[in-house]
């Protein structure tokens, strides 16, 4: 075989290997569904007031579990572990929603459920309803429930045996993992991190032509530079740029330049909304990123790593060229 043939064969072998390596990297530690399908949708009253509909939680990773407030052992364990998962996610915690669906509608009223889930984490949502409302949800997730009276304990004294798995639903609303009770916190965290990373890649938000204006290093005080980018929202829901960071700057703010009858005003803005299907340009004379406290001079040809954080899509990195 010729040298060229060998190289071609080698390339082919590598190409064949790549999917296997990628699949290995994304291997879940909880039980995974392949191919993933849409998680059964439901809408129920929440402990925090209002209604929670699963399909409206798109953009977040949902950790769904079932239990009841009188549960002595299993439920508090699961909820304490999910609180740990959230706290260990740090800045990404806001991209995860824990949802706790009652298996005991007779005793679990919304106020009681609210007080219960809040002791684990203030952001946890407890959902309840009538048996007629909850029944289809239990069935759709394969939850088996058996009520056991506690002998001599009075009329409201019973336990509810129930499936205590944690269902992990990705930001596109697909059921990806069902982790049985007893799955270590590390493993749940590992799987959630895979989904958060994948969500950022599949994000509806696309960053186009990022660049940063050149800036000198000042000997006496740290200088700043402006960053620009076009944000495209290919999704069906509005999103908003809420904050940003840069590897070369101490902090980054979102500013808007306004022309007030000839006087240029620069104002800090809390966010830049990007409607579905829209392109929003951060450009000179309009919205821009203010890179404050530069750690070095920025010259043409250098690159700066910008991290833009969106309300729904989360953090997205972009390599910006210095011009």
């Amino acid at each position: 075989m010729s040298a060229r043939g060998l190289v071609a064969l080698w390339a082919l072998a590598l190409a064949g290997l790549a999917p296997a390596v990628l699949a290995g990297a994304a291997a879940f530690r909880g039980g995974a569904f392949e191919p993933p399908r849409a998680a059964p949708d439901f809408a129920l009253a929440t402990s925090a007031g209002g209604e929670f509909q699963l399909s409206r939680a798109r953009g977040k990773v949902v950790l769904l579990t079932f239990g009841y407030t009188n549960c002595p052992d299993v439920c508090p364990t699961v909820l304490a572990e999910l609180a740990q998962v959230r706290s260990r996610l740090g800045g990404d915690a806001g991209r995860v929603q824990v949802v706790y669906v009652s298996v005991d509608p007779e005793r679990d009223r919304t106020e009681r459920l609210h007080a219960y889930v809040s002791i684990f984490d203030k952001t946890f949502l407890g959902l309840t309803g009538s048996t007629a409302q909850l029944g289809p949800v239990w069935k759709a997730y394969g939850i088996s429930i058996a009520r056991r009276e506690i002998p001599g304990g009075g009329p409201q004294s019973y336990g509810v045996h129930h499936t205590a798995s944690v269902y992990v639903i990705d930001s596109a609303g697909r059921l990806r993992v069902m982790a049985p009770f007893g799955t270590p916190v590390d493993d749940v965290l590992h799987d959630v991190r895979i989904l958060l990373a994948a969500a950022a890649e599949e994000s509806a938000i696309q960053l186009d032509r990022p660049w940063v204006r050149r800036a000198p290093a000042m000997p006496d005080s740290p200088s700043s530079a402006a960053g620009y980018v076009t944000i495209v929202n290919r999704g069906a829901t509005p999103d908003a740029l809420v904050s940003a960071t840069a590897d070369v700057a101490a902090s980054v703010e979102i500013h808007e330049t306004r022309n007030m009858s000839g006087m240029m005003m620069m104002e800090k803005v809390p966010k830049v909304v990007v409607p579905p299907g829209a392109r929003v340009e951060l450009k000179p004379g309009g919205y821009h990123l203010m890179l404050i406290g530069l750690k070095q001079a920025l010259g043409p040809g250098q690159t700066v790593t910008l991290t833009l954080v969106f309300e729904r899509a989360g953090a997205i990195k972009a390599r910006a060229e210095v011009r």
């Binding site: 039980g31 392949e34 997730y141 394969g142 939850i143 088996s144 499936t163 069902m178 049985p180």
Partner: peptide, 12 residues
């Protein structure tokens, strides 16, 4: 507790 759609796999 495992609900499998047609041609779906659960791997744990």
């Amino acid at each position: 507790p495992i609900i499998l759609g047609p041609r779906q796999t659960y791997r744990i």
